[in-house]
């Protein structure tokens, strides 16, 4: 047990929690917006992957990691636009279209990767970091927490911004109305379809950014299927958080830590099999659901397309 508490172990665990947790945080925050507005966005895995591919492609061709992030956002929004058109405007089944979009993006990006990169396997240079003065010098915590890429801090700030948006603004109320009682919002003069479409596009942007973070900072390259279920974890985080952005942050860090525990334990010289550790976050979620399941509340009109005048 003492070996587990070394500085190297804690440092690699914290670093891992952040590196693996930030994409989950972005995906979870994005999904939360869609769910609030009444759209169950199962296509988020595809949006992340599109963001990872396009984000890497832009970063690689422009040699600018920031343009890469914009590319990632664009990639996610591109898929989200399809989702908004098919599921919000035309009211097609959200689960079928979500799975279809994810499968399509998986296939397309794998093909693109095959024809573009499979011979060269280009890699991005290590990203810049922002070392916050003094704070970085704290032992163990310092380099892990305060020596990260600026995007990490932006993601953390977005948690507070979203919390404020949901709690204190009219827009937050409008979003909730679109998810709880779309007909009431319609009668009050709100535009359900526009609100829901905007929420889905926001989800796409956040998921795409999360994917681009995985490709450009986490890995430094694009690999087919590299998101590996991160989008699905994002869906779970959003459902467990019951509409609270801060809870998404807590969940993302816990999941991130669990996902990176394997590497940290290897640093500490432990020999617990990786598969056992990989089960921990999912087992924890199931336990939470078993204990507090009854209280997990979802918007009333989640997953139901809105048609004006329909009975």
């Amino acid at each position: 047990m003492e070996a587990l508490l070394t500085a190297a172990f804690l440092s690699s665990l914290l670093t891992g929690a952040i590196v693996a947790g930030i994409p989950l945080l972005l995906a979870g925050l994005g999904e939360q917006m869609s769910e609030k507005a009444g759209v169950l966005n199962i296509g988020i895995e595809g949006m992340m992957l599109a963001g990872a591919y396009l984000g890497f492609l832009t970063a690689w061709t422009s040699s600018s990691i920031w343009l890469g992030f914009l590319g990632g956002i664009a990639g996610g929004i591109l898929v989200a636009a399809l989702m908004a058109l098919l599921c919000v405007v035309l009211r097609l089944n959200q689960i079928v279209i979500g799975i279809a979009l994810t499968l399509g993006v998986e296939g397309m990006t794998a093909l693109l990767h095959h024809f573009q990169f499979s011979r060269t396997y280009p890699r991005l240079p290590a990203p810049d970091r922002v070392d916050l003065p003094f704070l970085t010098d704290i032992p163990v915590l310092g380099p892990s927490l305060f020596g990260r890429h600026p995007l990490v801090y932006l993601a953390l700030i977005s948690v507070l911004v979203l919390a404020f948006l949901y709690r204190r603004t009219n827009l937050g109320l409008t979003l909730r109305a679109a998810g709880e009682k779309p007909a009431a919002l319609d009668v009050a003069g709100g535009h359900v379809i526009a609100i829901r479409s905007a929420a889905v596009l926001f989800t796409g942007g956040m998921a795409g950014l999360g994917g681009a973070y995985m490709a450009n900072i986490g890995a430094g390259l694009f690999i087919p299927y590299m998101t590996g279920g991160a989008g699905f974890i994002g869906i779970v985080l959003a459902m467990l958080a019951r509409g609270r952005p801060l809870w998404v942050l807590a969940g993302a860090l816990i999941f991130g830590a669990a996902l990176s525990l394997t590497t940290a334990l290897q640093v500490a010289g432990s020999n617990i099999p990786t598969d056992v550790i990989q089960m921990l976050p999912f087992a924890a979620v199931m336990l939470v659901l078993v204990i507090w399941g009854r209280r997990a509340r979802l918007p009333a009109a989640l997953g139901v397309g809105y048609e004006r005048g329909a009975r």
Partner: peptide, 14 residues
């Protein structure tokens, strides 16, 4: 690559 089948199934579904 075999991944093309995913593209085909996806477009079929939509």
């Amino acid at each position: 690559p075999q991944d093309f089948t995913l593209v085909l199934v996806s477009s079929l579904l939509i």
